[in-house]
Amino acid sequence: MAEATLRFLRMRRWVWPLIGILLLWVALTVLTARFSLYSLSGVAISASFLLLPALGQMLVVTTGRGNIDLSIPGLVTLGAYVSVMTSTGTAAGFCVTLALIVGGGLAIGALNAVLVLILRIPAMIATLATGYILATATLIVNARIGMFQRPDALAFLSVGRIGDMPVILIVAILACGLAAILLMRSAYGRKLFAVGQSQDAARLAGVKVGRVIASTFIVSAVLSALTGMLLSGYAGGAFLEMGAPYLLQSVGAVVLGGTLISGGSATALGTLLGGMLLVMIVTTMQIAGLPPGAQDILQGVVIILVLAAAGARLSDR
């Protein structure tokens, strides 16, 4: 029985963040006497905005070799600024904004892929450099930002509700479902796992390794830019450092969700639950009155502990 349970947990690593969510929910309910299902809904909304860049980060991490996309914060912020600057408040204007944001994400993702695959720059350094370029671009356009005419379509996606269900949560669930199908039911998912487990073996099996890795950086960039657009609709504008929290949190959601940092295995549901767990951890620290700097430190400590535990499990194989 114990062996079967361990096998179940090893195959379904998303169970661990789910257990963490339930434990924290109970603890917060006891401590505050007011943390309810409605409060958990607020956590789910915050986690929904985190999910899109986290899914992109998950794909990049799954390719292995320490690949991480550090340009996510810059993409999120720039996506928000592009949305504010190009929006006319009309449906046609929203389509133009969406096209610009997707096109920009494709171009920046392709740039990251070129830096990593052709120029052979380590992913963390390449994407960090791209992030600095994006931050500089945001500073330049910041002085030109004007009033934001939020389109109805963007308002519906970011703050709308269908009944009692936030639309952004529905978007997150659909994105998670599509990512799960992509990973577990498609040839692309099998190729991605093969690349993460061994690039040499994947090449021998006929997998176009470069194309698979490039696709993850491109998808990550597009999802991050779209997140910036959604955040601009939610916040009613854009501001500098808007995407800053998503650097640590996108990695944290991936790691806490059970995706192997060494590559070769990922779980979309785990990433969603990992994001919710991370948001609940932040919520707990905010209720405790910890300053933002201490919150960042504790988030980093939690991620380090999870990575250390994952490394211990790998070394025992």
Rank of each mutant, 00 (worst) to 15 (best):
L23C: 12
L305M: 10
L183H: 05
L51T: 08
A54D: 02
I19N: 13
G274Y: 11
G293N: 14
A205Q: 09
P122M: 15
D200R: 03
V82M: 12
L24W: 02
L182V: 12
Q286Y: 10
M242P: 04
R313L: 15
G206C: 06
L78P: 05
T259D: 12
Q295Y: 14
L226T: 06
N67Q: 05
R10K: 15
S71R: 09
I287N: 10
S158A: 15
G20A: 15
T216I: 14
L230N: 06
V43Q: 11
M58N: 14
L139W: 02
I261T: 14
L55Y: 05
G56M: 06
A194G: 15
L111C: 12
T5W: 08
V82A: 14
A155D: 02
V212D: 08
P292N: 08
G263K: 01
T32L: 11
L70D: 00
Y132K: 14
M229N: 00
A288T: 09
G274T: 10
P292W: 08
G56R: 05
G258W: 01
I303Q: 04
G252E: 08
T271W: 04
R211G: 13
A194H: 07
V195H: 11
L9A: 14
T29S: 15
A54L: 09
R65H: 03
M184S: 13
I287T: 13
G252Q: 11
A107Y: 05
V43E: 03
R12L: 11
V254D: 03
S186F: 13
G270Q: 09
R203V: 03
A288E: 15
V60H: 04
L169V: 15
Q295D: 05
L272S: 00
I68K: 02
Q57I: 11
G237K: 07
L59K: 01
D152V: 10
L305T: 09
M242L: 04
G300H: 12
I162V: 07
E3R: 15
A2Q: 14
Y81D: 05
L52P: 03
W25V: 09
C95G: 05
R150E: 10
L247F: 13
S232F: 08
L51I: 10
A214N: 03
A221K: 05
R161Q: 13
R34L: 00
I21N: 04
G274A: 09
Q199I: 00
L119W: 11
L51F: 12
T259H: 03
